[in-house]
Design a protein around this nucleic acid. Structure first.
Length: 545
RNA sequence: GGCCCGUUGGUCAAGCGGUUAAGACGGAGGCCUCUCACGCCUCAAACAUGGGUUCGAUUCCCGUACGGGUCACCA
């Protein structure tokens, strides 16, 4: 068989060579040690946490080393592609603060190593496909789906390893040039297969996360080009990451089993292997066992879920960073107020086993993150979110901007800042009482206070109320009034001798709190009063007269 | 089923031959306190299992069990 002739027959349009490709995509001019990484999502319309998880690793590795991080759209499967999916990916990544240096952008490409959409790289792949045919490492296969099924059924019946390899590839491998020419002339569909080697030979690849990975050398005649001329993932990965000069391949562990194929191809082309980093799969608890997060059953897997819930972008990063590098929390404690981007991220600190996504933990991280953010930043984020998901509230935030900023600042200046806000959705609910439009009395007034006492208390409170009082003076007045009406000023006194009092200061302050906020659980009364302003304070209290 | 990866408290995890086996979330109790939140203190809670190697194994090796992944013209 004349391989050169076969190559010309199969790829008549290919005129460029591998050398041309090398010239078009030269090695990147980057400082020593700079890493080039990427994410390669498929445009299925569904972006999940795992995508972000891997994106964060790749982004950190690249930017921490002064390298390049890019976005490549892996759209080789046109059956799964969804309209607008590329924008969904770009927007979701953008929402969570993942910034690309180059790659696919909404209306095209940015960068010198494109195209960054695999379907547009068809000609590039064909150069390499042709080369493999020329050197006898690839051949066309005309087997139909039915024939493939038959082979599989036979293998299963014989308890043999399934797939196309060795003897099962013989029929296709041994087609003569004439037979191939004839098949092509008849327009029979074909795929290009790699010529595997059935052997016991093993090889070891060092995974940056998992250490040495030992595997049997690829024996399969796996598919390189599908019948539409588009490559499979295996082929595309090897060629793209070589030409785009990726130094680190960060991808899920589900790729580990196909590593032999990739190593085989890198060697066939004579290229150096990139550094593989196979990440653990995010898991979730189901009953008593863990399982992989699935997009069908787990809404919290979709990045869109975090957007809808209004989970703060920084919180998601911090949360994922704690999963990725266990020393992150320790570092954060030692470095409050510093950007998470300053954290020295390390691949070797990553665990090879799957982490469980714990929403409780996320919420805890989230509370701390928001609590540490300055009020104006919280305001900005909250407003951004509301503009999309809660427009009425966005209107209030805009109309009462000053008051909202004050409200978001409540408890912030203390040594132990409050952690009232968990996410933007919950924040809208929490902040409702600051605005008359959304204020409502949700809790019962304390039953310890009868109606007459209530009226007297409120009337006297309003009489002596001076909006200019500082917290200490204000509280002294409350205490005096509380005592005067027969309530214990110290809750402990009441606890000890309940018969001596009508109730305690807990009840009188709760009366004020509920009148002002509608809730028994709310921040400091004095602070709230000063956010609301004297007019609102008086009007809300007067309703109790 | 074959191959691959993994296994420290409920969860995330530190540990890298000798430790009272960290820490965080969650849980329980307490303190602080005008409620709540915060903060602080205390408690309960773990090395899957059987063999080796070793003076000594959570740590190294092998088997077993369990969990996960993968076996496509999907990525």
């Amino acid at each position: 068989m004349d391989n050169k002739e076969l190559a010309r027959l199969l790829f008549p349009d290919v005129t460029l060579t591998m050398e041309d490709m090398e010239a078009r995509y030269p090695a990147r001019a980057l400082p020593e040690g700079a890493c080039v990484t990427r994410i390669g999502p498929s445009p299925t319309g569904f972006v999940h946490l795992g995508n972000l998880y891997n994106a964060i690793i790749a982004e950190r590795i690249a930017h921490q080393s002064g390298g390049v991080f890019f976005l490549r759209i892996e759209d080789t499967d046109n059956k799964r592609e969804v309209e607008g999916a590329v924008d969904i990916i770009i927007n979701a990544m953008g929402y969570f603060g993942v910034r690309f240096d180059e790659g696919a952008v909404s209306d095209g490409d940015k960068g010198d190593y494109g195209p960054y959409r695999q379907r547009q790289r068809r000609e590039i792949y064909h150069v390499y496909a042709k080369h493999l045919v020329e050197i006898g490492l690839a051949y066309p296969c005309f087997m139909t789906a039915e024939e493939l099924d038959e082979i599989r059924a036979k293998q299963e019946a014989n308890k043999e390893t399934t797939g196309i390899y060795g003897p099962y590839a013989e029929a296709s491998r041994s087609l003569t040039l004439e037979q191939i020419r004839e098949n092509l002339r008849q327009g029979k569909p074909w795929v290009l297969r790699y010529r595997g080697t059935v052997t016991d030979e093993r090889f070891t690849v060092d995974d940056a996360i998992r250490g040495p990975q030992n595997n049997v050398r690829n024996y399969e005649d796996f598919v390189l080009l599908k019948s539409d001329g588009i490559p499979t993932y295996h082929m595309a990965h090897v060629i793209d990451d070589h030409l785009m000069r990726s130094t680190h391949i960060i991808r899920g562990e589900e790729w580990l089993p196909s590593l032999p194929k990739h190593v085989e191809l890198f060697r066939a082309f004579g290229w150096p292997l990139p550094i593989y980093c196979h990440t653990a799969t995010l898991q979730k608890m189901e009953g008593a066992s863990k399982r992989k997060l699935s997009k069908r059953k787990d809404p919290e897997l979709a990045l869109a879920y975090y957007q809808q819930e209004g989970i703060c972008q920084n919180a998601v990063w911090e949360f994922l960073l704690t999963l990725l590098n266990s020393n992150y929390e320790e570092w954060r404690l030692a470095n409050p107020g510093v950007s998470y981007l300053d954290f020295p991220f390390s691949l070797s600190k990553m665990s090879g086993s799957g982490a469980l996504v714990d929403l409780e933990k996320l919420n805890d991280v989230s509370k701390s993150v928001i609590s540490a953010m300055p009020a104006d930043e919280v305001y900005r984020c909250l407003l951004d979110w509301c503009n999309v998901y809660n427009q009425p509230f966005a209107g209030l935030l805009t109309r009462y901007r000053e008051r909202a900023l004050l409200a978001l600042n409540v408890g912030k200046n203390s040594a132990k800042p409050r952690k009232d806000l968990v996410n933007w959705k919950q924040a809208c609910d929490f902040l409702r009482f600051y605005f008359d439009e959304t204020f409502q009395v949700e809790d019962e007034l304390p039953p310890e206070i009868d109606e007459t006492t209530r009226r007297t208390f409120v009337a006297r409170y309003l009489e002596s109320y001076d909006h200019g009082d500082d917290p200490a003076v204000w509280f002294d007045k409350v205490k005096a009034l509380t005592a005067e009406l027969g309530f214990a000023v110290k809750p402990k006194d009441y606890k000890k001798n309940p018969e001596l009092y009508k109730g305690s200061i807990v009840h009188t302050t709760n009366l004020l709190r509920i009148a002002l906020t509608g809730r028994a659980n709310a921040p400091d009364i004095w602070e709230v009063s000063h956010v609301l302003g004297e007019e609102v304070v008086r009007s809300r209290l007067e309703k109790l007269l």
